[in-house]
Nucleic acid binder design. Structure first.
Lengths: 224, 224
DNA sequence: CTCTGTATTTGAACATGTTCAAAACATCAA
DNA sequence: TTGATGTTTTGAACATGTTCAAATACAGAG
C-alpha cells in the first residue's frame, strides 16, 4: 500500500509523519516509541500513519531508502579519487557508516529480520532488491575504479560477496558498544586489508582449485 | 521468572503447556498460534502459561534446550566412530539437523533475534551461554576425536569458529525451501570438506602470516 | 483437624500494532 | 455552483502478547 502522494499536501503529511517518527526513534528508541506518539507528534490521527506506511518498521525502511539515496554523491566522491582496492573499500564503507552514524542503533530495528529472506524488510528480500542491487553496484565500481585484476570466474559474484562482507561489518557496528565504535573501525581497517589481499591472492595459478571450490559453494547458495 | 516446579503437579502442568504449544506451533506455525489457543489446548488459563514461561518465544527456547539435551547421546555416538575431521564434522552437524528436522521452521522463530546479542534468546546472549558452550565443546571433541593436527595459536578459537560455521549452515537450512533441503545437504557436504582442508592448510609454514592476520581479526571481534 | 503461609491458577485489564468503515476534503466536469 | 468521484483523514474497534491482583489449592505446623 505504497502511498500515492499525488498532491503536495499529502507528500507533506507523509514527510511530517516520517520526521516525527525518526525524531522519536532517535530520542526514545524504536521499541519505546508508539504509533500513537508518532501520530500525535505529527499532528495527525493514528490511522494516518498507516495510510503512508505499511508498518512501524516500514518507517525505518523509508529512512534507509532516503539515506541510501542521499549518500550516493558521497559514495561517488569516495570512489573518485585514485587508490588501491583496499583504500577504495575502506572509504566506501566508512562513508556509509558516517551517513548512518546518527541512527546507528535504529538500523538494528531494520536488521532484525535479516535472517528471514521472506520478510519484506530483510536485506535479502524481494522488496529491498532495488536498493540492494544499487548497493552492490557501488562495490563493482570500487573494483573497476581501483583497476584490480580479478580472475574471470570470480568477477561475477565478487561485488555481491563484498556487499555481504560489508553487511557483516554493519551488523558488528550496530551492536558495538565500545566508545565511538573503535572496535568496528579497527576491524574494518584490518579486515578490508585482508579482503583486498585475498582477492589478489585468488588470482595466483596455485589458488585455482581453492577458488573453484569456493565458487562452487557460492553457486549452491545463490541458485534458488 | 524461571518456574520453581517444586511439585510434580506443577511440573506436569508445565509439560502440558509446552506440549500444547509445540503441537500448535508445528501445525499452525509460530506466528499464527496465540497464547490463548495454547492455554486452551493445555486446559489452563491464559496467565498460567506466563507462570511457567517468560514469553511465547521462551517456549521455543525451552524446546531448544530440551532437544539439545536429548541429542547429546546421538552426538556422542556420532563422534565415537573413527574417522577424519571432515567425517566427524559432517556427522556431528547432520545429527543435529536430523534432531531438529520436525521443528525446522520453528527454529526460525528463535533465530529471529540472533543479530542482537542483548536479546535473551540470541545464540550469543548471556542467557544462552551454557547451552552454547556445551555446543562448542562438541566441536572441540570432534577435533580431538579425529586427531587433527591444529596449530597451537588456532587451537583455542577453533571450536568456536566451527560452531559459528555450523550456525551459519543452520540459518541456511531454516530458510532452505528446496525439496528435503537438498541444497543445504549439498552445501554441508562441500563446505565441511573445504573447512577441513583449510584447517589442514592452516598448519603449513607458508600460511603463518595469513593465520596470524585472521587470528588478529578474531581477537578484535571476541574481545568485549 | 484447623490454621497459616506458599505455590499455583485464574481471568480480567492493559498496551500497542494494526485494520476499517465512515467522514472530510479536493478536484473537476457540466 | 453543484454533483460525482477519488483522495486523505479520522478515531473507534480489533487482535494479541503480557501483567497483575485476587482466588484457589495445598503442604506442613500445632
Amino acid at each position: 500500500m505504497k502511498a500515492p502522494m499525488s498532491t503536495a499536501k499529502a507528500e507533506d503529511t507523509r514527510k511530517r509523519i516520517l520526521q516525527a517518527a525518526l525524531g522519536l526513534f532517535q530520542t526514545r528508541g524504536f521499541d519505546d516509541t508508539t504509533m500513537r506518539e508518532i501520530a500525535q507528534a505529527a499532528g495527525v490521527a493514528t490511522g494516518a500513519a498507516y495510510y503512508y506506511f505499511a508498518s512501524k518498521e516500514a518507517m525505518v525502511m523509508a529512512f534507509y531508502e532516503l539515506a541510501s539515496r542521499e549518500m550516493q554523491p558521497g559514495i561517488a566522491e569516495a570512489l573518485a579519487e585514485r587508490g588501491s582496492l583496499e583504500e577504495h573499500l575502506r572509504r566506501l564503507i566508512e562513508t556509509k557508516l558516517r551517513y548512518f552514524e546518527p541512527n546507528r542503533v535504529l538500523l538494528g530495528a531494520l536488521l532484525r529480520h535479516a535472517t528471514d529472506p521472506r520478510h519484506p524488510l530483510s536485506p535479502f528480500s524481494q522488496e529491498t532488491r532495488a536498493i540492494r542491487e544499487a548497493d552492490i553496484e557501488a562495490f563493482a565500481l570500487a573494483l573497476t575504479a581501483s583497476e584490480t585484476r580479478v580472475p574471470k570466474d570470480l568477477a561475477g559474484p565478487l561485488p555481491r560477496l563484498l556487499w555481504m562482507f560489508q553487511l557483516a561489518l554493519i551488523f558488528f557496528w550496530i551492536t558495538d558498544h565500545s566508545a565511538a565504535q573503535v572496535r568496528t573501525h579497527k576491524l574494518l581497517e584490518r579486515s578490508v586489508r585482508l579482503v583486498a589481499n585475498l582477492i589478489k591472492l585468488a588470482g595466483l595459478p596455485l589458488m585455482r582449485p581453492l577458488r573453484k571450490t569456493v565458487l562452487d559453494l557460492i553457486e549452491i547458495v545463490e541458485t534458488p
